[in-house]
Computed example of a mutant assay.
Amino acid sequence: MTPQDAPDNRWSNLDRPPLNATALRRALLRPDGLWTSLDVVQTTGSTNGDLAARAEQTPEGAVLVAEEQTAGRGRLDRNWSAPARSGLFFSVLLKPSDVPVERWGWLPLLAGVATASALSRAAGVDTALKWPNDVLVTVEGEERKAGGILAERAGGAGGGVVLGIGVNVTLSNEELPVPGAGSLVLAGAVSVDRDPLLRAVLRSLEQWYGDWREAGGDPDLSRLQESYAAGCATLGRTVRADLPGGRSVTGEAVAVDADGRLVLATGDGMQEPVGAGDIVHLRSVDS
């Protein structure tokens, strides 16, 4: 193997160059900022798993990025796979010890708002959120999932929450892992340079997390609930919620409540909050 073909050589794949860890640290690590460390590894099973394993001994604000994940996971234990350097695959460690634990459930929704809004600005694509935190883009007039977020409690009292974020950036149609997936390049992104995209997402996450924490985790006071609702493509749709235990509920998604749950108005006139499950968009209310 020549030096030019080495996996960490910036010119070994002109279409998918590696991330510049030194430049990312210079841009993101500040004495008064949230991010305290940033490491980029060539490959790993799961950045969430790696960061969770050392959460109790690691300061808040650690960022772990992988050029490739071999055992990435999404919500409901689904696999998340993509070619090396084709997206953003990273996890962050948060320890909001001054926020009541019952409000920590807002963290994955917060990450969804931060990620979707940052990608919209930095990549120049329209983004939306499918409850609770799938990032949607439009490809040839169709909603496609281009990103997802997985939040996991890590460690004991000294642990916290590990947020894993995955975004498909340059995947082609032939590389998409499942039907219904998408990528920024397929959505017509004006930029697919992963360095500025990652900087934008982490800066947005830092801003939203700071505001939420300053508000004591209150989703109303921090404007998180309002912003989430404004960007949520699920609201106003007829959906089916496939719930744990095999039960399903169909209804109109009418609100996201103060606990981050999706509220469905069912055909019998009842309103049912959904806190966990798989949401399937069936049709819009006006169709």
Rank of each mutant, 00 (worst) to 15 (best):
D77W: 10
S120V: 00
R10M: 00
R283Q: 09
N9L: 00
D218F: 06
V41I: 13
A151R: 07
T58H: 08
P83Y: 05
P108K: 09
S91W: 10
T58Y: 11
A187Y: 08
D5N: 08
S204V: 09
Q271L: 01
S91G: 05
Q42L: 14
A215G: 07
L202T: 07
D77T: 05
W35F: 06
T43I: 14
A157F: 09
P108W: 08
E140H: 13
S191T: 15
V256H: 05
S86D: 04
D98C: 07
V185P: 00
V254P: 00
L109F: 02
D77A: 14
V201M: 09
P132K: 08
N48M: 09
Y228F: 15
L205P: 01
I165M: 13
P18M: 07
L51C: 00
L197D: 01
W11A: 09
G148H: 10
S46A: 06
A276P: 00
L243K: 05
S97D: 13
K145I: 10
R240F: 06
T115A: 09
R194Y: 02
G155P: 13
D5P: 01
T44Q: 11
P31F: 13
V101M: 11
Q4I: 13
W106Q: 02
V274C: 06
V135I: 15
G216R: 13
K95H: 09
V92D: 04
G245I: 12
S284K: 11
E175M: 11
P3E: 08
L235G: 09
A6Q: 06
Q57R: 15
D195V: 08
L88A: 07
A123R: 08
D5H: 11
D8Q: 09
L29R: 04
S46Y: 10
A276R: 07
A233E: 08
R199V: 15
E102N: 14
G236S: 12
E152V: 04
P83H: 04
V101F: 10
V63L: 02
R283L: 05
R10K: 01
A200S: 15
D5Q: 12
L221T: 08
T43D: 05
G160H: 00
V63F: 05
G147E: 09
C232Y: 12
D126V: 11
V185M: 08
P17S: 06
N20W: 01
S12T: 13
R75M: 04
W131R: 07
S248I: 01
V125E: 04
E60P: 09
A230L: 15
S204A: 15
R194C: 01
E252S: 06
V254M: 03
R85W: 08
E60A: 15
